[in-house]
Design a protein around this nucleic acid. Structure first.
Length: 814
RNA sequence: GCCGAAGUGGCGGAAUGGCAGACGCGCUACGUUCAGGGCGUAGUGUCCUCACGGGCGUGCGAGUUCAAAUCUCGCCUUCGGCACCA
């Protein structure tokens, strides 16, 4: 048996053993309290990179810790396997997306094993396999049956060169990332989930412990704003048409001197006069073409066109012109605004450019509002030019004007959200087919549950024909109508991959169920997730979708409770040694396989955990690795090399060693619970140093030494699982270290018997005094004033005041 | 522009309002027949001092406090997210 620490020998050995023994298998029958620890599953592309290691090493460490605390831990892993990269590989290199994906998964599993991660592989899910996506389709049908899925026209990015729809991330600077063609917008009929029905509830984060940052980002994304919808009366030549505008400042309605509609607004056609028809049509087309590129730049000059139509401002009774402009978004509010140029900068710029009237409806303490304004001014003084409301102070105005509008019947208080419904259709091959059949006679029909899954056909075509790949496979598209069996056609859009990942945590509870997505017993046993970990890049998409999904499932009676993930921890982003994002083009990539070959998995895991706070990420510099490697070697030496043992339980040396051991337990427990792995390791290093000193001093008490060694191994086990297992075995302890109980701190043993009191004069440290533990304030005072150093600083002056912090500090104020 | 997080040695980073710089890297000196990316001991913010010791120090400027890296206010910078949201 080698006496040296040789990670390359021990790591594969224990990985094999753990796998054979199914050491991390989570049993449904285990009656202990469950703990569901979930790390966001990866998209299997190429290799596990260092960022993956950073995430999963931390999650694995915490899962192992929870096991040692005695929980029945469920720590599953799987693959979010549908998606664009597989399809791109298919297009570029002619490989089958399914083959490409399966090959990558095999590689990922190998690398996860190499890490020593304690996943329960018996529960693995792969979202691109029919036994999983059958249930993604099932969920779609449940949503559809409850009216939460619907079809509507929506803009898609269209690449004229590739003749295909592009995802937003494939559009770079308004151009197709592959062909560099200018991307157009095309309106297609697509499927949506009504996430907006849950907007209000999604803003509440009751009962969950999530980072403030993430909750703020979600609130921001949902974008709740309170205001009113006011009904203007559009004069369309024929009958008057009601035209609702959303505003957060209904109190400025008397200053609304024109209306602006989004170019896509439904009433544009109706209000446009013959004279203006040509200009309006051109502008609408230009907007459609301009799409993202220009609309994204905030400070470009306002553009717009007069429709020729007018509307009656119900407050002032004045007829105001109706314009269209692309700064008004059809997707927000009612897609129409009343413009109040005196008090809104955007409206002001627009009015100035097109010579429209500017009427202030608030006075201002410093600005003469009767003179022409140079810019929009804040509303907040008292109302003017507002008929019966003149003189109303700003703080009461909104409520009073809304009440007035309600009474007169031309408006009501409303809440609007920025959040839009979730577009789940993708015109792609590599996704779960949406289980819908279009029948000419019967319309849109759900595929009967008994016919699920609707499997993806083999041999997809990826030619640029302008049609989605599934549309080109006639044999697949043609399907009988579920009602009468007449020829009908399948829906050829596939589901957004975010849908597959919105419910995967449920599937882990019962992953092989062929009757249901999961049984209600196992759902009750394992759900919800107790601890979720993952990158903050999923703050608003995945993490919002999965909350929506859960709430919808709750309302269907499928799950209990309001939230899917009770605690969330976001690890930070790991950067390259140069502080830049790791990327192949920068050449600053740290390859995990190389690191493992060089140092071993345990060292690499520990180093990743040691570089800084886990939620902070930051630069990863392999040059610091030697510190961790040294420590692991030292730990090895402490546990395997002989110490001169004796029986000396009462000596100061013994007490001191035991104190160090129990302080280490206390610190490690505390740091582990808070995911502070960096300071946790530093505490373990301190313990190693204490052990080293105790042994070097000569004889050590046998009991204290053995305690120190086993505690050191146990506390290290979650982070360096192979090393700990090997040392545990060499100590002759029963397999496995990972099934041992986490050590418990004996507070009495951890207590110092002396304290060092810091003595300050006027807040500056002037002396330190050692006192026995439990010394009274009187003792402390006596000792302080007896100090020569203190007397020198006092110079005979009389203390005005003294502050005593027991056991810590004594401050004399002169 | 709005929302959020963060600014501490040469570097990564520690500090329930109570000793700033734990732990580690790097560096310096000394020791060691160091085969295993050696090991051990001591030192390492800065300025003054042979030294004892002292002054100054946590992005900048105020404030609260006996006491501030930490709390408050104002600014600057960096990073992340959103962005013509009415």
């Amino acid at each position: 048996m080698a006496d040296r620490y040789e990670p390359h020998v021990i790591e594969p050995k224990w990985q094999q053993r753990w796998e054979t023994d199914q050491l991390y298998y989570a049993s449904d029958e285990d009656a202990r309290t469950k703990w569901y620890e979930l790390a966001m599953f990866p998209y299997p592309s190429g290799d596990l990179h260092t960022g993956h290691w950073y995430h999963y090493a931390g999650a694995d460490t915490h899962a192992r810790y929870m096991r040692m605390l005695g929980y029945n831990v469920l720590f599953p892993m799987g693959f979010d396997a549908f998606g664009l990269p597989a399809e791109n590989a298919a297009i570029k290199r002619g490989v089958d997306p399914a083959d490409w994906t399966r090959t990558n998964i095999v590689n990922f599993r190998r690398q996860f094993k190499m890490m020593g991660a304690s996943f329960d592989w018996s529960r693995e899910v792969v979202t691109s396999e029919p036994d999983y996506y059958k249930w993604s389709q099932w969920w779609f049908l449940q949503m559809y049956n409850r009216g939460l899925a619907y079809r509507a026209a929506a803009a898609a990015n269209w690449c004229p060169g590739c003749q295909t729809v592009l995802a937003n991330e494939q559009v770079v600077g308004g151009r197709c990332e592959r062909s560099d063609d200018v991307v157009e917008r095309r309106f297609l009929t697509q499927w949506f989930f009504k996430i907006t029905e849950y907007a209000e509830e999604l803003l509440r984060f009751d009962g969950i412990e999530w980072p403030e940052r993430i909750m703020a980002m979600q609130s921001n994304w949902i974008g709740r704003s309170e205001g009113a919808v006011l009904e203007f009366e559009a004069r369309t030549g024929g009958a008057a048409e009601s035209l609702g505008v959303f505003t957060t400042r209904p109190d400025t309605a008397w200053g609304a001197t024109f209306l602006v509609l989004a170019p896509e607004h439904a009433l544009v056609n109706l209000v446009t006069t013959a004279m203006q028809r040509k200009a309006v049509t051109e502008y609408v087309q230009a907007t459609a073409r301009a799409s993202e590129i220009e609309r994204l730049s905030t400070d470009r000059e306002k553009s717009g066109v007069f429709t020729g139509g007018y509307a009656l401002n119900p407050f002032s009774g004045v007829e105001v012109p109706i314009w269209i402009a692309d700064y008004v978004l059809v997707t927000y509010g009612t897609g129409a605004i009343m413009a109040v140029p005196a008090h809104d900068q955007r409206d002001f710029e627009f009015a100035t450019k097109f010579g429209l009237p500017i009427v202030p409806v608030y006075d201002h303490p410093e600005i003469d509002v009767t003179a022409p304004l140079k810019q929009a001014i804040a509303h907040g003084g008292r109302m003017i030019n507002s008929g019966p409301f003149d003189g109303t102070p700003g703080n009461e105005a909104v409520q009073r004007v809304i009440a007035h509008a309600v009474e007169k019947g031309f408006g009501k208080a409303t809440i609007t959200y920025r959040l839009r419904d979730w577009l789940i259709s993708r015109q792609r091959y590599w996704g779960a087919p949406i289980p819908i059949i279009h029948c000419e006679q019967h319309g849109i029909l759900a595929v009967p549950e008994a016919d699920l899954p609707v499997e993806l056909p083999d041999h997809p075509h990826f030619e640029a024909t302008g049609q989605s790949p599934l549309k080109q496979i006639e044999s697949w598209v043609n399907a009988p109508c579920p009602i009468d069996g007449a020829p009908a056609r399948r829906e050829t859009d596939t589901l957004d991959t975010f849908m597959c990942s919105s419910w995967y945590q449920m599937r882990y509870a019962d992953p092989r169920n062929t009757e249901r997505p999961f049984s209600s017993e196992l759902g009750r046993k394992w759900l919800p997730v107790d601890q979720y970990t993952g990158g903050a890049d999923h703050a608003v998409m995945h993490l919002l979708y999965t909350r929506f999904f859960w709430k919808a499932a709750r309302d269907m009676g499928i799950v209990e409770g309001d939230e899917p993930m009770l605690r969330l921890f976001n690890q930070g982003t790991l950067l390259g040694p140069d502080g830049q994002k790791m990327s192949k083009s920068r050449g600053n990539v740290v390859a995990p396989d190389d690191q493992v070959a060089q140092w071993g998995a345990d060292a690499f895991r520990c180093q990743l955990m040691f570089v800084g706070p886990w939620d902070q990420g930051g630069p990863y510099n392999p040059s610091g690795m030697s510190g961790i490697v040294k420590w692991l070697h030292r730990l090895w030496g402490l546990a395997t090399e002989e110490a001169v043992l004796t029986s000396d339980p009462k000596s100061e040396a013994t007490r001191s060693l035991r104190r160090a051991t129990h302080k280490a337990i206390r610190a490690a427990t505390d740091e582990m619970a808070g995911f502070r792995f960096n300071t946790l390791i530093s505490r373990l290093m301190e313990h190693s140093t204490a052990m080293h000193k105790a042994r070097a001093a000569g004889r050590v008490d046998r009991e204290a030494w053995e305690e120190a060694v086993s505690v050191a191994v146990l506390l290290t086990a979650p982070m360096a699982p192979h090393l700990a297992e090997e040392l545990w075995a060499r100590m002759g302890k029963p397999y496995s270290v990972h099934q041992q109980a986490w050590p418990v701190c004996d507070a009495g043993l951890a207590t110092d018997d002396e304290i060092e009191l810091v003595v300050q004069v006027n807040g500056k440290v002037r002396d330190r005094i050692t006192l026995p533990m439990g010394a009274s304030e009187a003792d402390a005072r006596a000792a302080v004033f007896a100090s020569e150093t203190v007397q020198q600083w006092l110079k005979g002056a009389e203390p005005r005041r003294v502050i005593y912090v027991p056991g810590r500090l004594f401050n004399i104020v002169l």
